[in-house]
């Protein structure tokens, strides 16, 4: 505390001395980031240029092969199939999610509706977001199993004569994955959109009401256009999350992505490469996913304008 014994108007030199503490306080983050994120990222990229896998008991490689892994993976019909699966299941969940969230957020923030129990509904609808996705998927697997309670209810009600095999149907399995994502993420999106709607200048709504606009018109002509940046933000962050889809389809199908690998996502495929120690192909797939999320993140960055706001 030598600095303190000096006169207080010691000027910038003293401030400079304090400012060195910034490095010390940053150190834990920086060290952990370099060891557990940066080095793994670098070695993942490095691996993608090598032929390195196991064939039975025999280890092939590592041999440097340049971009051959990328050429192989990009020309593989599997990649495009799994990208398609991931996007389809994301969309099955995202479309109802954004529609319902918009409705709920508009209702929650509409003072003329004056809904009761808002806190209760928000609490309930947000709840599934915190549930362990793997346990939730296991629950759905038991509930929708051939001899599970859903089938027994449908049979009891006479809607079907014999159990429907949900997990043998591509449409049913994909829909279940999408539905679970819908249930898990609607609350979160609703709360985000609500924050956006509450940020809109209330005099705009009042003026529109005075001019005789209907609730429907106000929503479409004022709320939606002003909400666009947040909607785009929700869309892209949800897409980034969707590309990482893993827990639900992995547990639901026991990692097989069945029926006919139609529910296999990109990360499930990556997980397979990691387990079989196919590091070359796994690396190339990781790098492709990294680039894809990178592009999407830059888009988010631009929308939120984080880079501008940083320095005050």
């Amino acid at each position: 505390m030598a600095a303190n014994t000096k006169s207080t108007n010691g000027g910038s030199k003293k401030v400079m001395r304090y400012n060195r503490w910034g490095y010390i306080f940053l150190l834990p983050f920086f060290i952990v980031f370099v060891i557990f994120q940066l080095i793994p990222l670098a070695t993942t990229i490095y691996n993608s240029f090598f032929e390195n896998y196991r064939s039975g008991l025999k280890q092939i490689g590592p041999n440097f092969i340049g971009f051959a892994n990328y050429a192989k993976i990009l020309s593989s019909p599997d990649l495009w199939k799994y990208v398609g699966n991931t996007l389809i299941m994301w969309l099955i969940g995202f479309i109802p999610q954004i529609l319902v969230s918009l409705l709920l957020a508009a209702w929650f923030t509409d003072p003329s509706l004056n809904l009761r129990g808002k806190r209760f509904f928000k609490t309930v609808i947000y709840l599934p977001n915190l549930i362990m996705a793997s346990a939730f998927a296991m629950l759905f697997f038991t509930l929708f199993a051939d001899s599970g309670p859903v089938n027994s209810m449908l049979v009891q009600m006479g809607l079907i004569s014999k159990p429907f095999k949900f997990f043998s149907s591509t449409v049913a399995t994909r829909s279940l994955v999408g539905f679970m994502n819908f249930i898990m993420w609607t609350g979160n999106t609703t709360i985000l959109l609500m924050a956006g709607m509450m940020g809109i200048d209330p005099t705009l709504f009042e003026a529109a009401e005075v001019d005789g606009a209907s609730a429907n018109q106000i929503f479409r002509r004022i709320t939606l256009p002003l909400l666009r940046p947040i909607l785009v933000y929700v869309l892209i962050t949800s897409l980034i999350g969707g590309l990482q889809m893993f827990d639900v389809p992995q547990i639901l199908t026991n990692g097989s992505g069945d029926p006919a690998r139609n529910t296999m996502t990109m990360v499930m495929w990556l997980n397979k490469h990691l387990y079989s120690k196919n590091y070359g192909m796994g690396g190339a797939l990781s790098v492709l996913m990294f680039l894809l999320t990178g592009v999407l993140s830059i888009a988010v960055f631009h929308i939120t304008g984080n880079d501008e706001k940083t320095d005050r």
């Binding site: 080095i39 990556l270 999407l296 988010v300």
Partner: peptide, 25 residues
């Protein structure tokens, strides 16, 4: 400022894409 931008930039990197290197490490 560079550090702040870096932290924000890495915010969206999914853990899955570095998992391979992470396991090797």
């Amino acid at each position: 400022k560079a550090m702040y931008t870096l932290i924000l930039a890495i915010m969206m990197i999914p853990t899955q894409v570095t998992a391979l290197g992470f396991i090797q490490l």
